[in-house]
Amino acid sequence: MTTIQKPLRSRTRQARRQRAARSPRWLLIGAEVGLPVILIAAWWFASAGSTNIFFPPLQTILARLWQLTQTSEFLIDIGSSLGNLVASFVIACLLGVLLGLALGTSRFLSWLLEPVIHFFRAIPPVALVPIFVSLLGFENETRILSITVAALFPVLISTIDGVRANDETLDMVSRVYRLTWSERLFEVVLPAAAPRILSGMQVGLIAAFVVMIASEMLGSSTGLGAKTLLAQQTFTIADMWAGILLLGIFGYLATFLFELFRRRVLRWYIAAQQQERQL
């Protein structure tokens, strides 16, 4: 089958290369850098003389953002938000992988708990925030718990899937060579499940970020989310925009940093996949 498809596939690749070659490289790279610059410039100039209260000039927003970062209160808010996010995400990852390993290896446990887990997974994580608020109040523990729970379920479910999809041959190899259970766990089971676990963590990270903001908006007074909502409610529009910009940048950075981590951990997997695609 593969031998029949090969000429067709190589023709496809060739055609694709030709199409890519139609536009010169400098134009493509120029466009890649150019359009974002043009868009930011467009925002800058279009909003320059804006009197619309909802859309103040970009210059005003950036000036306000700069001002805010000079105040210690604002920096404490940022620290609180990011600290909660990182701490909760790490806890969720550790807990999710541990529980996932247990459930992935024990058939009885997974049969017993999977329906309950899938139910929890189906609840929009933000909806759990009011529950934690009502049980624990407006303390920081509420936010940590909410974020952890939000990130936990994607990690847990992907770990279960990853552990269960383990290759039978590798399992036999481990048994024939009498690997100890810790060798099996760290050298075979976890690396094999790593691609799935890390995509679960990626989903979990975004959920954690959403719930970080939501938990601050729902009745906390510290944190970037709380400050942004407060600014909206008090019509300090430039402050609100500054908060939105910063939250957007943090959301992007969180995913970006995680992607760097993922590429490092999964170097073998990404390279092997690329190799397969080229064949």
Binding site: D167, T169, L170, M172, V188, A192, W268, Y269, A272
Partner: peptide
């Protein structure tokens, strides 16, 4: 094993 592609750890 016969399945050499699957009996080595790719990582």
């Amino acid at each position: 094993f016969q399945e050499y592609t699957r009996s080595l750890m790719p990582w």
